[in-house]
Simulated assay, not measured.
Amino acid sequence: MLSDSKVAQEVCNQALNIIENSSDENKTMEITKEKELLMAIMFAENEVELATAINEHIEWTNRHKEKFNCSEIE
């Protein structure tokens, strides 16, 4: 599988390096976004809003894994 290759590991490492070395402004925006998503879960007024908010948070937290398939690389 491609995720087991050296190339895939290097791509993942480089992507993670970019994230680690991003500006404080970008990191702050990411933290703010996550807080907004979590607050939408906490303050959902019904089951539909809750399910939607949970799904949005899961999609947001998995966005990098899906792009780079880093979840399978050790």
Results as ranks from 00 to 15, higher is better:
Met1Arg: 04
Met1Ser: 14
Met1Val: 03
Leu2Gln: 12
Leu2Pro: 13
Ser3Pro: 00
Ser3Trp: 14
Ser3Tyr: 13
Ser5Lys: 10
Lys6Met: 04
Lys6Phe: 05
Val7Leu: 12
Val7Glu: 08
Val7Tyr: 02
Ala8Ile: 06
Ala8Met: 11
Gln9Val: 05
Glu10Arg: 11
Glu10Asn: 10
Glu10Val: 14
Glu10Ile: 14
Val11Gln: 04
Val11Ala: 12
Cys12Ile: 08
Asn13Lys: 11
Asn13Phe: 08
Asn13His: 08
Asn13Pro: 00
Gln14Arg: 14
Gln14Trp: 01
Leu16Pro: 00
Ile18Cys: 07
Ile18Ser: 07
Ile19Gln: 06
Ile19Asp: 06
Ile19Trp: 10
Glu20Trp: 05
Glu20Ser: 09
Asn21Pro: 01
Ser23Trp: 07
Asp24Leu: 15
Asp24Cys: 09
Glu25Met: 05
Glu25Phe: 10
Glu25Asn: 08
Asn26Glu: 15
Asn26Leu: 14
Lys27Gly: 03
Thr28His: 06
Met29Asp: 15
Glu30Phe: 06
Glu30Ala: 15
Ile31Arg: 13
Ile31Val: 12
Ile31Leu: 12
Thr32Tyr: 01
Thr32Glu: 14
Thr32Trp: 01
Thr32Ile: 08
Thr32Met: 06
Lys33Ile: 06
Lys33Val: 02
Glu34Tyr: 04
Lys35Trp: 01
Lys35His: 09
Leu37Thr: 05
Leu37Arg: 01
Leu37Cys: 02
Leu38Cys: 05
Met39Cys: 03
Met39Asn: 14
Met39Trp: 00
Ala40Leu: 01
Ala40Ile: 00
Ala40Cys: 00
Ile41Phe: 00
Ile41Glu: 06
Phe43Ala: 10
Ala44Glu: 04
Glu47Gly: 04
Val48Met: 02
Val48Asn: 02
Ala51Gly: 01
Ala51Tyr: 00
Thr52Cys: 02
Thr52Val: 07
Thr52Tyr: 01
Ala53Thr: 03
Ile54Gly: 05
Ile54Cys: 09
Ile54Glu: 11
Glu56Met: 07
Glu56Ala: 14
Glu56Lys: 09
His57Thr: 15
His57Cys: 10
His57Met: 11
His57Ser: 12
Ile58His: 10
Ile58Glu: 09
Ile58Val: 13
Glu59Ile: 13
Glu59Pro: 00
Trp60Glu: 13
Trp60Met: 11
Thr61Asp: 08
Thr61Leu: 13
Thr61Ser: 15
Asn62Leu: 13
Asn62Met: 14
Asn62Glu: 10
Arg63Asn: 12
His64Met: 14
His64Thr: 05
His64Leu: 15
Lys65Gln: 14
Lys65Arg: 15
Glu66Trp: 02
Glu66Phe: 08
Lys67Cys: 09
Lys67Pro: 00
Lys67Trp: 04
Lys67Thr: 08
Phe68Trp: 15
Phe68Pro: 03
Phe68Thr: 05
Asn69Thr: 07
Cys70Val: 05
Cys70Glu: 07
Cys70Phe: 09
Cys70Thr: 08
Cys70Lys: 10
Ser71Ala: 15
Ser71Cys: 10
Ile73Lys: 04
Glu74Ser: 11
Glu74Leu: 14
Glu74Val: 07
